[in-house]
C-alpha cells in the first residue's frame, strides 16, 4: 500500500518480451502475402475471392465454435486467419466457394477446436482439411488452371509433377524458370517458388520459425532426388519447386502445434517429411505427397518430442546409461 493505493504483486519476471501470439500470426500472414499476390497475377482475381471466403469462414467457424462451447474468444489471435489463408493457397483457383468454406469449417471445427483449440491440435488443420476435400471432391480439387489463361479464357492444364520431368517442356511447355516464377498449373499458392522463398526468408528473419524443419525437409527431398535422378540438378529443382514442397516446408510443416519443440526433434521431423514426400513422389502416382508426408509426421510428433527431450543442465552422461541398464 502506497499513498492509500494498492500495489500490483505478481511472480517474477516483471519484464516480458514484446512478442505475442497475434504478432506471430500476423507475421505469418505477411509472409504469405507475396504468394497471394503472385497467385492473383497467375490465376486471376478469383484467387482473392477464394482467399476471402476461406479466411472469412475460418474466422466465423472459430467464433461460432468457441461461442457454442462457451470458451473464451480466440479469433483475436489471428490463427484462424492463418489457417484460412493457408487452406486457400492449397486450393485450385476454380474451386467452388462452398467447398472452400467447407474446408475451413473442417480445419477449424473438426481438426482444431474439437481437440481444444490453438496449440492443442495434433494434426495441421489446413493440411487435414485439404486432404478431406481431396478425397471428397477429387475432380474439383484437381482442376488445375493454366497460368495466365484467365486473361483470355480459362483453360486447364496438368500440374508439373503429374508429367514426367523429361516431358515437362514438350508436353506442358513449362521450363524450370517458369516453375520458379510460378507459371505452371497447381494449387493457387504453391506455384510461385520465388514468392514462397521470400516469405520463408521473412519468417526466418523474424525468428518466427527456425530453419531446422525447412532445411531438413527440402534438403532431404533434394538429396533423395539427386540420387534418384542420377545427379541431374534439373530433376532436383523440378522436385523442390514442384508440388507444394516450398509452401509445405516453410509454412505448414513449421506449424507450432504440430511439429516437435526441440531443434533435434525438428530435424528428425523434417527428414521424415522429406523421405515420405520423396517415396510418394517416386513410387506412387500422387501429386499431393507433401500434404500426406506432413500429416503422417504430425502423428509421430509426440514420440519425437519424447525421444528428443534434452537432459537437464549438468546431468552426468554416465547416470543415463546406468538408469537404462536398471530398467
Amino acid at each position: 500500500m502506497v499513498n492509500g493505493k494498492k500495489l500490483v504483486v505478481s511472480a517474477s519476471p516483471h519484464l516480458r518480451s514484446a512478442q505475442t501470439t497475434t504478432k506471430i500470426m500476423l507475421d505469418v500472414v505477411i509472409a504469405l502475402i507475396p504468394a497471394l499476390i503472385a497467385a492473383i497475377f497467375i490465376f486471376g482475381p478469383r484467387v482473392l475471392c477464394v482467399a476471402a471466403v476461406s479466411i472469412g469462414s475460418a474466422v466465423l467457424a472459430e467464433y461460432i465454435s468457441r461461442k457454442v462451447m462457451k470458451r473464451h474468444q480466440t479469433i483475436g489471435d489471428m490463427s484462424a486467419v492463418v489457417t484460412g489463408l493457408i487452406l486457400a493457397l492449397n486450393l485450385p483457383s476454380t474451386i467452388p466457394y462452398w467447398i472452400a468454406a467447407l474446408g475451413s469449417v473442417v480445419a477449424i471445427v473438426v481438426v482444431k477446436q474439437f481437440f481444444g483449440g490453438i496449440g492443442q491440435n495434433f494434426a495441421n488443420p489446413a493440411i487435414t482439411a485439404r486432404i478431406v476435400l481431396l478425397l471428397s471432391f477429387g475432380a474439383q480439387m484437381g482442376n488445375w488452371v493454366a497460368p495466365l489463361s484467365w486473361k483470355t479464357g480459362i483453360t486447364t492444364t496438368a500440374t508439373p509433377l503429374a508429367v514426367e520431368y523429361s516431358k515437362l517442356e514438350s508436353e506442358l511447355g513449362v521450363s524450370l524458370v517458369d516453375m520458379f516464377l510460378g507459371l505452371r498449373g497447381g494449387c493457387l499458392g504453391e506455384t510461385c517458388a520465388l514468392a514462397l522463398i521470400l516469405g520463408g526468408i521473412y519468417l526466418l528473419a523474424k525468428k518466427v520459425i527456425s530453419p531446422a524443419i525447412p532445411a531438413a525437409f527440402i534438403g532431404t527431398v533434394a538429396l533423395i532426388m539427386l540420387i534418384a535422378g542420377k545427379g541431374d540438378l534439373g530433376f532436383v529443382a523440378y522436385h523442390v519447386m514442384g508440388g507444394g514442397l516450398l509452401l509445405g516446408a516453410f509454412f505448414m510443416a513449421t506449424d507450432y502445434s504440430t511439429c516437435p519443440i526441440n531443434v533435434k526433434g525438428k530435424i528428425i521431423f523434417g527428414i521424415g517429411c522429406g523421405v515420405i514426400t520423396s517415396l510418394i513422389r517416386l513410387f506412387a502416382s500422387m501429386t499431393e505427397a507433401v500434404s500426406f508426408a506432413i500429416l503422417i509426421m504430425n502423428l509421430v510428433v509426440p514420440f519425437i518430442d519424447r525421444a528428443t527431450t534434452p537432459k537437464p543442465f549438468g546431468t552426468p552422461k554416465k547416470e543415463k546409461k546406468s538408469k537404462e541398464a536398471a530398467n
Binding site: V8, Q19, T21, I118, G119, Y256, S257, I261, P310, F313
Partner: peptide, 25 residues
C-alpha cells in the same frame, strides 16, 4: 510498466524451452 501482457493460450511454439538455460521443458 507494471501491467503485463494478458495471458493467452499456449501455442506450443517452444520459445520457453529454447530460452531455458537449464535445458528444461
Amino acid at each position: 510498466d507494471a501491467v503485463l501482457k494478458p495471458e493467452t493460450d499456449c501455442i506450443r511454439c517452444g520459445r520457453c524451452a529454447s530460452a531455458c538455460p537449464m535445458s528444461l521443458m
